[in-house]
Each structure stands twice: as C-alpha cells, then as structure tokens.
Design a protein around this nucleic acid. Structure first.
Lengths: 333, 333
DNA sequence: TTGTACGCGTTATCAC
DNA sequence: GTGATAACGCGTACAA
C-alpha cells in the first residue's frame, strides 16, 4: 500500500505538499500539482482515512443500525442514507441486529471504538437505556421511525396521524361511511397514531366510532387475514377497510376472496407502507407511500446537525407520506 | 475522551504496561494490573480501534458493496454477511452504488482508505477493470453472484445450471412435456446457465428444444407479462413454463389471467428467486430459493480465507438452491 | 510556494 | 516486570 511518503518521493516533493493537493488547498503551483497527481495515479494511492481520522478526530463514517434489513421499511431507507452520506463525504458502517438487544449494545460499542461520527438507528423502545447513555455522552444519534414519549433524542419519524387521516378521508371522500380498521393496536407507536387519524376523520365527518370495526393484530399477512375474517363475520360489514400495514392488507385479500367477495366491488381496501407486493397483487393495492428514501436522506441531514451541534438537539423531523391511488378502492355512488 | 496515556499517568505506570493489560499479555504483576483496571474504570476509557488499526494494519472491518440493496437478492444476503462477520469480530462498511460505475470505483477507494481488511461486492461485469486492479494489488475481494468467464477473482455464486435443471425436471416429473421458458437471455450469466439446465433436462427426457417456447425479456414484471403473452399466442401453448425470475413469473400471472386462463389448471408456472411477493400472490408461486443468508455467510468465510492467504485464491464457492413447492404447478395425469 | 517537525493513540521492540 | 521510544500514515503550524 502506497503512502503519502511514497508519493512525495516519487514526485520529488515533500509530504506536506502532497497533503496540500490531497486536500485541495491553495498555494500549490499547477506544475507541482500535476507531478503529484501523476504519481498518485501511477501508484494507485488513496490516502488513509484512518490516519487522517486519528489526527483530525473525525472518521467521516456514520453508523446505521437496524433490527432487520430484510424488513421492507429499511432497504429504501438505507439507500437514502448511503446516498446522502456519500454526497457529504461520509461512509456508512452497517449493522443488522436481528432484533437482539445484546447485539444492539454491541453494535453501539463497536461503532464507538471505530470512532464513527454519529449513529442513525432504529432501536426497540425496550433498549432505551443504551440510547440514553449515548445522549449523556453527548454522542450524536438519530432515531428512525420510533418517536419517543420522552423526547430526549432526535428523531426522524412518519406523520402517522396524518397518514391515518389521509387514508380515512380518502375513503370518506369516495363515499364510504362504514369504514373498518385493521391495526397493530395502541401499543405500537404507529398503530396508536394511525388510529387517532382514523378517529379524527370519522369525527370530522360526523360518524360514530364503532369498536366492532376495529381489529387488532400484528404486522403479518396471516394476522391481516384473521382480522379481515373477523370483520367479514360482522352482521353489517363495512364498505371499506383501512389496513395499517400493506402486509396485513395483503393477508386481507385472501380472507375476502375466501368469502367469495371481490375487491373493490364488494369491499374497498387501502393499505399503508407501499411495499413491493402491493403493486403486484391484483387488484393493485391503493396505499400510502412513506418516502423512505427521503426519510433516509433527512436522517443523515439531521445527524449532521447533531454532529455540528455542541449539545444534543433533541429535534424531531416529520416526513409526510403520500397516497398512491391504485385499484383497490371504488367510489360509492 | 481518555487515552492510554491518561490511564498510565493516573495509575502511575508507563503506557506500555497499560497496553499490556489492555491486550491481556502475561508478565504483569497482579497488583499493577489492578491499579490500571481501576484507572480504566474510573476514567471510562476504551481503547481506540482507529489508532490500534493504524499500527496493526488491520481494521477488523470488511466492506460490502451492492448495486441496489432494495433488490430482493440483497437484504437477506446482507443479513448473512453481517451475522457471520459479527461472530468473527468484524464490522461491515456498507455501500449502495445505485448501479453507478463511478460510485463503485469511489466506494472501493473510500473503503481502502478506511483500511477495510477485505471487500465483498457484486459488480457489473462492465466494471471489471476495478476488480482486476484490486486483485493486482493482492487485495482480498470476493465477488457475489456473478461468476466470471475469466476467473481471476474468488466468487460466491449460485449453481444456475443446477437450478435450471431442478426447475425443468420438476415439471417433467409432474408429467409436463411441453415446457416454456421465460428468461433474461444468454447475455446474462444467470440466464445463460439456466437455459443450459433447461435444455439439458429436456434432452435427458428426449424432448426436442423448441425455440418458440423460449421468450427473452428482462427481469421485471412488465417484461414477464409480455413474454407470457407471446407464449400464450402460440398455436400450441405449453402446459408449463419456467420463469427464470419470480418478478417475471409474477408478471406472467397477469398475462395468463387476462387470457381467461387459470394457474395451475390451464398452465403451470415455476419461478426462481423466492422473492417475498411469490408467497403472497395467489396461487402461491412454486419457486426456487437461493439460500441468500447462507450465501452471505459463505461469502464472509471465503473472504476470511482470502485475507489469510498471501496470494489471491481465485476460488469459486457454489451454493445450491432449493425448490419450494407451492401451488402454481399441477401434476398432469 | 514549499519543506521540517511534531502530534494523533496505539502496539512492538528493545532495554533495564 | 516494567519503561522508553520508534513506528503506523497523515495534517498542520511554523520556517524557509
């Protein structure tokens, strides 16, 4: 591996001059610069960020920790993060913790030992202690997706209330008045907020909240299917359902088809997340896209602010979602 | 941030002695060790992996570069890589190049600057120069998914011939004799090999190769739909089709349904990749799983071998795929 | 405009 | 058992 000294020798200059062209500093004669560039090219030299980091106390690396990169919420997010980080001269150190709290802790320690300049992560609320420790150390952190009740840490989050409102009002405007809800319940951050959006919209249109129409499950196709079955077993089934997660919406399809009903003729369905599947099932699922790529970019921007700042900023950036109209909702006349 | 010198001062010993206890070296009096441990504890010191890496010329970081992490081939692979790397004491530096050759080159340079101990990547064949440069430098690299015609670089790959054979023979054993093929063509590595598997199987069963039954497109649902349309417009349509990519298979569904035909009653379909969608569309797609997680793990193991070795190993590790039986193929009586 | 010398935090090689 | 000290590869005052 060539070092800056090798370049200096080859170009017949001093290391500081090489350093100058490496960092695009002024005051270096075009001619010498050319010599140096040539040497760099010939020796295939690229400067050591490790050594550089040591003296600058800055690694130009940020950490990114997720519980499961295969979860559809994360790949696009990762792309946004990497893209923005790159454009700012940062690399990203990645960890998939497989939802394991111990691995989360380990990841944090490893990354600090690696001198990352900051960390973007999506931790379980249960592992909040580790986050608090980081904050106490004044270490730049940004939490993704999970807003905290006690906001001591900067966060990039979805506006779930807005999303719930958007979905529900879309159905209302299409003429639906009896609208079901399939949700992950009030325990989850997103579930809680989307229910609020749902209820607010109903209220706005003067519709009473009917508990029978609200089915709580978990974010999986099977669970979605069960929830929809329960709804379809009601005496008075709704004309439309808002499934808070596409995966649950996809499961719902099966329950509906099993009953011999069709979408959207017999029942309309709107999802949330805009996962890949939603555009490939038939009818194509109308859903809400969460702009994950943008979220990732915004996350990096926020982390950069944290890195600049002396104190933890404790900021909250909200990304608004967008409704994707497809074929699973019909207009009631 | 406390340094090793601070500890030395506080414990009234030399930095060398501190370094010794840090690395669990022998020949240090229990008493002094205790003093030092106490100082470490009190100052909340943890040694800098950066400085350590500088002198040891080893970062315990490996690089991972993909063209698009949102492509279903990669998230599970990433999980396998991170999991294995972690168990070996390695962290992983991640890059998504968005299929951009310049970013690929940049990623390599950045990672080398970061002193990663090796890189696992999935590069376009077109950017082969960069790989060759790495090899020439004796830099440990493992290529994922793309076997090279000129094998100068270690590779983890799928056994596509085997996969093509497995899919085709599965259909043959189910009694199908007229079998279509939807492929990405001979230009692509995987396409080429799967076609071979297909032809071999046909031959084995004494069936003539019929060019009309082979449709070439690209790996997308739309393209799959077009390919299947062409097949369905034949005078004598096949009873089964092997779609070389699930995405194309998913597109095929639509072409089939549009014709008023059903799966698998009128036509059987088998895919390849086992992407998420395949288990959610109806009927569930019978397909071939490529064991991506295992592939990732094997990739790390191979990279470790490369790192140990003095010379590039130029090894090729092949991961066999597995057929996932679902509902899109029927048995012909 | 360019070169010298020191420091970043650690480990390894000698001494003692 | 323990302590100096020279690397590791780079950036940056300060000098020239």
């Amino acid at each position: 591996m060539a070092t800056i000294r090798d370049i200096a020798k080859k170009a017949q200059v001093s290391v500081s001059t090489v350093s100058r062209v490496l960092n695009n500093k002024p005051d270096v004669k075009a001619e010498t610069k050319k010599k140096i560039d040539k040497a760099i090219e010939e020796l295939g030299f690229s400067p050591s960020n490790v050594a550089r980091g040591l003296v600058l106390k800055k690694s130009s690396v940020i950490g990114f920790i997720v519980p499961d990169i295969a979860n559809p919420s994360f790949p696009e997010l990762a792309r946004g993060i990497v893209a923005r980080a790159r454009s700012l001269g940062y690399s990203v150190m990645f960890f998939d913790t497989n939802h394991d709290k111990h691995v989360e802790k380990e990841a944090i320690n490893l990354m600090q030992g690696k001198h990352v300049d900051g960390i973007i992560l999506s931790f379980n609320e249960a592992n909040r202690n580790e986050l608090e420790k980081l904050i106490k150390k004044q270490f730049p952190v940004v939490q993704i997706y999970r807003k905290s009740s006690r906001p001591t840490i900067s966060t990039i989050a979805l506006d779930n209330i807005y999303a719930g409102t958007m979905a529900t009002e879309y159905l209302l405007k299409k003429g639906h008045r009896r609208i079901g809800l399939i949700t992950t319940g009030k325990q989850t951050q997103s579930g809680y907020e989307r229910i609020i959006g749902y209820r607010n919209s109903l209220e706005k249109f003067g519709i009473a909240y009917d508990e029978d129409l609200v089915q709580v499950g978990e974010n999986s196709a099977d669970s979605g299917k069960r929830c929809m079955s329960n709804i379809l077993n009601l005496k008075n089934i709704p004309t439309a359902v808002f499934a808070c997660h596409d995966l649950m919406a996809v499961g719902s399809y099966e329950a509906i088809f099993d009953k011999g009903l069709s979408i959207p003729e017999d029942i309309s369905l709107i999802g949330h997340d805009n996962i890949d599947v939603s555009q490939y099932i038939r009818p194509k699922l109308t859903t809400i896209d969460t702009h994950k790529f943008d979220l990732g970019q915004a996350g990096v921007d926020l982390l950069m602010e944290e890195i600049q700042a002396e104190q933890p900023l404790n900021k909250e950036v909200i990304i608004k979602a967008e409704l994707i109209e497809r074929d699973s909702v019909r207009e009631l006349i």
